[in-house]
């Protein structure tokens, strides 16, 4: 088995996809670092004062002013209200949620890329794992060996898991390493609040507790990894079902982007919460943001994702072992 996985990893590396992905990340991170840097600079210029409390208070007042406007959408109002009470809570506890530093950047970067960017990168790796063998005809060579079919597929699946871990790791390392040049490398022990629960437009704070930032980041990366594995599994299933890599990519791309759009407009269509693509934003539950649909929670979203993942896994293995190859 180990040799099979080794073989698959070798194939993956030979395709050079992993390097391309690392290059993409290495190109994007400086871009966002610069954007963040500009934002901080701009804020300083405007406020003429570097005390974060003043900045945060100003933001709170601005939000309050927006809330008092009558021409505001209900959805948006709810989001603003929850963010407002959260900011107030941070302020009251004298914690700066955005103290600049490489770990903070890492956290913000990963929170923003969990629902689209990282799944897309995963998709690039996984989409042709099986379908390329089918379209290239090498699948016949692979299956004529005296190894059970499910073992071959499992070795591919494990190789996929490993490369997902590798991608997530490189996001962590690159975002830390590059942004640290600008923001400094400190800030791992900064306290952050988690455990916010949202009910309607109220922010519940019963279960709120402090975690150091390094634990917070580790937790978020765990969630990111989970999301990537689920997206990877679904792509993997499509890759087994379809011979054309382009079709796999197209379907995944469409559903991921549809998810990103749907999140913004499904609030009244309640059964949409069973789609996997509106549940990708797991980190939002840790940081305590408004959910796209009433009644979603971390447990719910993880369960939905798990069901989709397991179903995809089973379908992939059953079809692969039963299919006629000619």
């Amino acid at each position: 088995m180990i040799n099979l996985v080794r073989n698959e990893m070798l194939k993956l590396l030979r395709k050079k996809r992993l390097y391309v992905i690392i290059l993409i990340i290495a190109f994007l991170v400086p871009l966002f670092t610069y954007a963040q840097f500009k934002e901080i600079q701009d804020q300083r210029e405007k406020m003429g004062n570097q005390d974060w409390r003043t900045v945060l208070q100003q933001e709170i007042t601005d939000t309050q002013n927006r809330l008092s406007s009558s021409r505001i959408q209900d959805e948006w109002r709810k989001y603003l209200k929850i963010r407002l009470s959260q900011q107030q809570y941070y302020l009251e506890n004298d914690i700066d949620p955005r103290a600049p530093g490489a770990p903070t950047f890492m956290r913000i970067f990963v929170e923003n890329s969990i629902d689209l960017l990282l799944p897309l990168l995963v998709m690039v790796i996984v989409a042709d794992l099986v379908s390329s063998e089918a379209s290239g005809g090498t699948i016949k060579l692979l299956l004529t060996r005296p190894v059970k079919r499910w073992r071959i597929l499992l070795s591919k699946y494990l190789a996929m898991m490993l490369s997902i871990s590798f991608i997530v790791l490189s996001v962590a390392v690159l975002s830390y390493g590059i942004s640290g040049l600008v923001f400094g490398y400190g800030g791992w022990n900064m306290p952050l609040l988690t455990g916010f629960a949202v009910s309607g437009d109220e922010l519940l704070t019963e279960n709120v507790h402090i975690v150091p930032q390094w634990q917070y980041i580790l937790m978020e990366f765990g969630l990111v990894w989970y999301v990537c594995v689920i997206v990877g599994t679904l792509t993997f299933m499509l890759s087994v079902l379809l011979r054309s890599t382009a079709a796999v990519m197209g379907i995944m791309l469409a559903s991921l982007i549809a998810g990103a759009i749907l999140v913004n407009m499904v609030s009244s269509w309640e059964s949409a919460k069973y789609f996997f693509m509106v549940n990708l934003n797991l980190t939002n539950y840790v940081s305590g943001m408004a959910t796209p649909i009433e009644g979603m929670s971390l447990g719910f979203s993880m369960a939905v994702l798990a069901v989709w993942g397991i179903a995809g896994f089973i379908i992939a293995f059953v079809t692969f072992s039963k299919r006629d190859i000619y």
């Binding site: 790791l169 580790l218 937790m219 990366f221 765990g222």
Partner: peptide, 10 residues
């Protein structure tokens, strides 16, 4: 392993 640990911790 690290990410699994992070997930478990979450």
């Amino acid at each position: 392993l690290l990410w699994l640990f992070g997930l478990g911790w979450t």
